[in-house]
Design a binder for these strands. Structure first.
Lengths: 114, 114
DNA sequence: CTCACGGCTATACATTTTGATAGTACGGGT
DNA sequence: ACCCGTACTATCAAAATGTATAGCCGTGAG
């Protein structure tokens, strides 16, 4: 008994986490940045189908959530670099786990016979 | 070099995984079912704010993706039980990881001073 | 003068997801 | 005849998310 409150807290934790890394692009962007610092244009090319509008939005959200760092170089033409923060780096465990699960899932689906 | 194709494949893996467990409710529902078999009404009560419509939809999707099992007992009043399949069970690693990360993230946000 | 570069931003629109509200089906109890 | 409980289902509306298309900024090359 008495685990209700804990359960609820855990649930909120997960929900909160999902608000930060949920959505179609967030984790995919993070995965690219986990490979190293990238510029806007590089990300744009690396993400087939994303519009600059979306990319900007997602990056700004990630930035304000403290997951990525945005560095502007006052040059012309402009140069902006994006990199993961320490917290962003700690997401590697999740993306790895997710990828591992995704692989296993695909295997299963392939040989499925429930 | 030559890692482009692999990267792309990994990315698709993650995206595919997100299609199955993405969204506002899926993982939260799974978390409840990972605690044990539950009935529709129980889930409804356990998920504050979800509408029966949403709950039904999400459960059906999870079912058709092979993550949960739906068992109907031909009684009146009706009784339907939901439980995780073996694949669903394998998601525990992810929900745990996510919760762990969420906790750490909250800590960070709390004491933030970038 | 004009155009290109890089990183956006503006505007308008389409699609997808989520929500509120109410109703259905079924047999059993009163 | 009427209501109850259980698990939905239908209809409509709103909100979140995504897309298409075009343009801005300043400077240096042509």
């Amino acid at each position: 008994m008495g685990t209700r409150i804990d359960d609820l807290a855990e649930e909120c934790t997960v929900e909160a986490a999902l608000e930060v890394i949920g959505g179609k692009w967030k984790l995919v962007i993070l995965r690219h940045l986990l490979e190293g610092t990238k510029r806007f244009g590089e990300l744009d090319k690396a993400l087939p189908g994303i519009t600059p509008r979306m990319l900007t939005r997602q990056l700004r959200e990630l930035e304000s959530d403290g997951l990525v760092l945005r560095t502007v170089y006052p040059q012309v033409p402009p140069k902006v670099e994006y990199s993961v923060t320490e917290i962003g780096e700690s997401l590697r465990a999740i993306t790895d786990q997710l990828e591992q699960w995704g692989r296993a899932y695909r295997e299963r689906e392939h040989t499925r016979r429930w």
